[in-house]
């Protein structure tokens, strides 16, 4: 089959790649663009380690065809920090020790950013259901939920003082 030429925007920059028609966006990000922050834990949309934002919507990039990225806007974990200044959720994950092995972490960070963009004051219940598509086998989720709560608190306070 004919290979596809794709022009897209990744973390604010134009990106171009050639891909197989059946190739996943995750494989293209990791293999074609060397953005290996997004991880593959299952390849079937069950673990959330490949979570990215596609036109602002949270998706599992393993379930999106690379060719579908044409003309779209992609945000990955590599684009979360502002230069060397971490996004609050990245900083809070470190402060709360919300990662052990760190393999699921990129997916959790992107999913959390999506949650807080959408709902700045989520309850514990809302946090737990929003993140239910992201598997973590190390932490038991306790410190992840606390880190998300603390991030939301800080971002709300910053908005108030801004």
């Amino acid at each position: 089959m004919t290979k596809q030429f794709v022009t897209t925007t990744v973390n604010g920059d134009t990106a171009e790649f050639i891909c197989e028609p059946g190739e996943s966006l995750l494989d293209a990000l990791r293999g074609r663009l060397q953005l290996t922050g997004s991880k593959e834990g299952c390849g079937s949309g069950d673990c959330g380690a490949c979570t990215i934002l596609l036109d602002g919507e949270m998706v599992c990039s393993c379930l999106v065809f690379a060719a579908e990225a044409e003309g779209r806007v992609i945000e990955t974990v590599e684009g979360m920090a502002d230069g060397s200044v971490l996004h609050p959720v990245q900083r809070k994950f470190l402060e709360h020790a919300a990662l052990q092995c760190g393999f699921c972490t990129p997916g959790f960070l992107v999913a959390t950013k999506a949650l807080l963009d959408h709902n700045p004051d989520p309850s514990e219940h809302e946090i737990r259901y929003w993140l239910a598509g992201n598997l973590c086998r190390c932490t038991g989720y306790d410190k992840i939920v606390r880190a998300v709560q603390d991030t939301a608190r800080e971002m709300r306070n910053e908005r108030k003082t801004a």
């Binding site: 290996t36 997004s38 593959e40 990245q90 470190l94 020790a97 990662l99 760190g102 393999f103 972490t105």
Partner: peptide, 21 residues
């Protein structure tokens, strides 16, 4: 105490290299 881990930033920015990477 509870200091931030030395390998922390690599692991929250996607820079850390795991075996499939």
């Amino acid at each position: 105490t509870r200091p931030v881990r030395p390998d922390g930033i690599d692991k929250v920015t996607g820079k850390a290299i795991y075996s499939p990477d």
